[in-house]
Amino acid sequence: MDLVGEVIRSVRVGRPGARLVRQTGSRGVRFPAFEGSGFHVVLAGTCWLVTEQGDPVELRPGDVVLTSAGAPHGLSSVPARLRDLPMVELGPHRPEPGPASFEFLCGSYHLGPGRAPHYLRTLPDLVVVSPDPERGPRLRALTDLLRAEVSASPEGDDATVPALLDLVLVHVLRQWRDEHEPGAGALTDDPAIATALRQIHENPAEPWTVERLSRVAGLPRTSFARRFAALVGRPPMRYVTQWRLERAAGLLRETDAPLATIARQVGYSTEFAFSAAFRRAHGMPPGSFRRMPRPAMGVSAGSAGGVRAEG
């Protein structure tokens, strides 16, 4: 099982958003904590990543900041304390006049509480990835494409934006993994657990139990459950449920299939049982989730506008 692919499948069920930020003031901007994951790519100028703990980190064009689980942070033209930076105010507005001190591209996936993928939750709250000589041209090309699409579609309704967000995140995670966790290309290198995971992913409609999964893995039931939880971060049946509902969320966003059909495809015998489980996981019934619009981009991206700050 590919580790990065698992992360992408998990975040894809969230609400994707992207925006271009042109910071014209000298005070910087503060981003609050949010339920999800995201990144910033510095496009022009230099700035400093500011966190609640630790010293500010200087960023240069091409650097990427990964907010693995939505931790609060700030970007400032000078070193600063996070509490001293004005809070970002999302919403379209006219850019402030004057030269920009720095410019960056934001991408985010808004997820439900506790829905950030397990691997991202194991990373530091904020990860900085600098351009790699080999990957640099590819990541730069993806960033240029994402910037162009966001600028052309300031309302965020361009279908290519989510795909480009996925690709940027793939490149950033792979570079981080290769630099800090060489050889950790799979969700798990345990062949027995990997076999069980593959079956869960490929056949979510199967009536899985711990007993059945342990037979697939070729392990005693107790040993399988213990190893699965240790390696994947969740007990087997909790993982099965989360995967089914993540897959269902993707089908709700990507298809017009009736709820009863989606319920059967992800292993629920009735639409009622599926709806109840989906509501518990996502905080709303599947019909409401399907109708929910994407979050506002928050910035007048078409004009490469700035961000208004409170305070």
Rank of each mutant, 00 (worst) to 15 (best):
D2V: 00
V7T: 13
R12D: 01
V13H: 09
L20R: 12
L20T: 00
V21E: 15
R22M: 08
G25V: 14
P32Y: 00
A33D: 14
G38P: 02
F39K: 12
F39I: 05
H40N: 07
T46G: 13
W48A: 00
L49W: 04
L49T: 00
E52I: 01
Q53R: 08
G54F: 06
V57P: 00
R60P: 04
G62S: 06
V65P: 01
V65S: 04
A71G: 08
H73Y: 10
L75V: 01
S77Q: 01
A80Q: 01
R81A: 15
L82H: 00
D84W: 02
D84K: 02
H93V: 06
E96M: 13
A100F: 08
L105M: 13
S108Q: 15
S108V: 09
Y109L: 13
Y109A: 15
Y109H: 04
L111G: 03
R115V: 03
A116T: 06
A116K: 04
S130R: 09
D132A: 02
P137F: 01
L146W: 10
R147L: 15
E149D: 08
V150D: 02
V150T: 12
S153M: 02
T160C: 06
V161C: 15
A163F: 13
L164D: 02
L165R: 01
D166E: 12
H171G: 06
H171I: 07
D178Q: 09
P182L: 13
L187K: 09
T188W: 10
D190F: 03
L197V: 03
R198D: 14
N203C: 06
E206T: 10
T209S: 15
R212D: 01
S214V: 02
S214Y: 12
R215E: 10
L219M: 14
R221Y: 05
T222N: 08
S223L: 14
S223E: 06
F224H: 04
R226D: 05
M237L: 15
T241P: 05
Q242K: 08
W243H: 14
L245N: 04
E246H: 15
R247M: 14
L251E: 07
L251I: 00
L251K: 03
L252C: 13
R253T: 11
T255N: 02
P258D: 02
I262S: 04
I262K: 12
A273Q: 13
F278R: 04
R280N: 09
P285W: 11
S288Q: 12
R291K: 15
G298L: 07
R308C: 05
